[in-house]
Computed example of a mutant assay.
Amino acid sequence: MAEETMPSPLRQKPVYRFAPSPNGLLHLGHALSAFLNHDMARDNDGRFLLRIEDIDQTRCTPELEQAIYDDLGWLGLDWEKPVRRQSDHFDEYRVALDRLIEAGLAYPAFLSRGETKAIVRIFEAEGGIWPRDPDGAPLYPAMDR
């Protein structure tokens, strides 16, 4: 009887992405990040994706989004089409959020980043130790939940 062999799993290509927000023009740091991810995708037979982080609908504009495409093209970079625009997926995010709320895993938060930082700063200046996540970022104040 011949030995049966299991087919090897298909190797998926690694995915690299660049995700700018169209709320201002790109700067050198953006260019470096785009180049690094683009080149890693090329060097590892991977995919290079562009994701437009346009959920801030007051600051993000179509003109600044077009400037991103123009600048990246001018730099000689190419990416898979279509580009994922975060604002095109609000309905999907709402469904996911509703599931988290139903499971009791989400809560409303109304403090700005600046307000949160001020609360943590005052608490720690008074000798307290603010709880932090594993990366060291302060946890959101429970007083606003």
Score class of each variant (00 low, 15 high):
M1R: 14
M1S: 14
E3F: 06
E3P: 03
T5E: 04
S8Y: 09
P9M: 09
P9R: 13
L10N: 08
R11Q: 04
R11V: 13
R11M: 12
Q12Y: 03
Q12S: 14
K13Q: 15
P14K: 03
R17Q: 07
F18A: 03
A19Q: 02
A19P: 02
P20N: 09
S21G: 01
P22A: 04
P22E: 04
P22H: 05
L25H: 12
G29T: 06
G29I: 02
A31H: 02
S33H: 12
S33R: 12
S33L: 13
A34H: 04
L36I: 15
N37P: 07
N37E: 00
H38M: 02
H38A: 14
D39P: 08
D39H: 12
M40K: 15
M40P: 04
M40V: 06
D43N: 15
D45P: 00
D45I: 08
G46C: 01
G46P: 01
E53W: 00
E53F: 02
E53Y: 07
I55T: 15
D56K: 12
Q57F: 00
C60F: 00
T61Q: 09
E63H: 07
E63Y: 03
E63P: 07
L64D: 05
L64V: 09
L64K: 11
L64C: 01
L64W: 09
E65Q: 10
I68E: 06
I68R: 05
Y69P: 01
Y69D: 03
D70R: 15
L72K: 02
W74A: 06
L77F: 02
W79H: 03
K81C: 04
V83H: 04
R84Q: 12
R85Q: 05
R85L: 14
S87P: 07
S87K: 10
D88V: 08
F90K: 06
F90D: 04
D91L: 02
D91E: 11
E92K: 15
Y93F: 13
R94D: 13
A96W: 10
A96C: 11
L97C: 11
D98W: 10
D98A: 11
R99W: 08
R99N: 12
I101N: 06
E102L: 06
E102Q: 07
G104L: 05
L105P: 06
L105M: 14
L105C: 14
L105N: 09
A106W: 02
A106D: 01
Y107K: 06
Y107W: 12
P108K: 10
F110W: 14
L111V: 11
R113I: 00
G114W: 03
T116C: 12
T116R: 06
K117Q: 15
A118Q: 14
A118Y: 00
A118N: 09
I122D: 15
I122H: 15
F123W: 14
F123V: 10
E126S: 01
E126A: 12
G128S: 13
W130S: 03
D133H: 03
P134N: 02
D135P: 00
A137E: 13
L139C: 08
Y140T: 08
P141K: 08
A142F: 09
D144E: 07
R145V: 08
R145F: 09
R145M: 09
R145L: 11
